[in-house]
Write a protein that binds this DNA or RNA. Structure first.
Lengths: 206, 206
DNA sequence: CTATTTACATACATTCATGTTTGTATATAA
DNA sequence: TTATATACAAACATGAATGTATGTAAATAG
């Protein structure tokens, strides 16, 4: 009952990734053995080792499956002025869209949980931190552009530099995401995330 | 060479805690065995198990050694109007003081690192998240009081509620701390943390 | 001064995770 | 049609971590 077709193999591969993500988000990366992942995916460790080098590789792939699409979508919401003319609204929509994805897409939600409170950034995962920092810088730059735009349109109520505003917004949102993830019951942050975003943007509005 | 005096025992106890903190922050909680902790502290696992129930207990104690004093000191900087009259300045000073402690005190720095990027909040550690949320709520409340004060003194440039401002500040600072910890090189955040805080507070000033 | 804790060190038992190797049925290429 | 590579399963070997149980010398209580 072995030697599946190429498509079958890809299916198993994806099932393993899904199983890993689910178990990572349930029990943390360290306490999730490849044996458990295999069992949860309905295969043996042989299959896991066939498709992936080790647990770390699985972690990276899980991360990429969420973040590569995310990075691709940034420009659409944030920089595309076709949909929304008001720059401040574009920033707001970008933040809201991220929250929305967290609410709607389980894979994204699980991945964020793993990345924020269910893995340890040491050894092979230590350099992921660098990646995160670089990603953040990119996002801040883009937000800065939009604030710059808003500034030119005299939509901003202070004379702070767009760079300062962008960084402040980014830190705010980073903090919000962290609390969102930690607030498993949802009472404190998950239910109010949208309002918090709107308030934050509102603070800049003339 | 056994059976130390009570003071000696307390010294070993503290050495074990210190060893745990150092190894946790170097290699993460999961990859730090009690054997390694014992060796690093110059004792055997017997001593560790004598003083602590298990690794989780050590984690909690490490956390408390930093957070209990921190909570105690909050009111001093934040609510004591004796030192600083300007409420906005008091908030700023509170945030700056926290950054300052991170810069100066190695134990605090290591503990923050462990709590934010080198442990997994699952199983026995899952309820620490609840603790964190509660702590945050307390801090937000206190910040809110100070903003309320600032509002009454007409120091604030917007008509947003003190509660909104407090939450926004808290999320900003949470985000900042997370980036601070992740930015091990220091180029992106650690070196600019104070400026970022001042900018944030400045955004509220009339 | 003796009995009893105390503060560990040492030894033991068990479990679990990892990586590698080997076996194998079948899809696929030639 | 046959040879080979593929997609796994199964078995093997190793190492590491945990918890507990036992041993023990010295501090301390009575």
């Amino acid at each position: 009952m072995v030697r599946k077709t190429k498509e079958d193999a890809e299916i198993t591969r994806q099932r393993i990734i899904k199983a890993a993500r689910e178990l990572f988000s349930q029990n943390g990366v360290s306490k999730t053995s490849l044996e458990k992942i295999a069992k949860h995916a309905g295969v043996t460790r042989g299959a896991v080792y066939w498709h992936f080098e080790n647990k770390t590789a699985l972690f990276h792939i899980m991360r990429e499956q969420v973040f590569l699409p995310f990075i691709d979508r940034i420009d659409d919401t944030l920089l595309a002025s076709t949909s929304e003319k008001n720059p401040l609204k574009r920033i707001e929509n970008f933040l809201l869209a991220t929250i929305h994805t967290l609410n709607e897409d389980q894979a994204t939600r699980q991945t964020y949980e793993v990345l924020m409170i269910k893995c340890e950034y040491v050894d092979e995962l230590a350099d992921v931190l660098q990646q995160i920092l670089i990603n953040c810088s990119d996002i801040v730059e883009k937000i800065e552009q939009v604030y710059q735009d808003a500034h030119r349109q005299h939509l901003i109520n202070s004379n702070h530099s767009p760079a300062d505003l962008a960084m402040d917004t980014h830190l705010f949102f980073g903090g919000l995401l962290h609390m969102w993830v930690k607030d498993i019951e949802g009472k404190r942050f998950r239910n109010h995330a949208e309002a918090l975003v709107k308030t934050h943007i509102n603070l800049r509005q003339r």
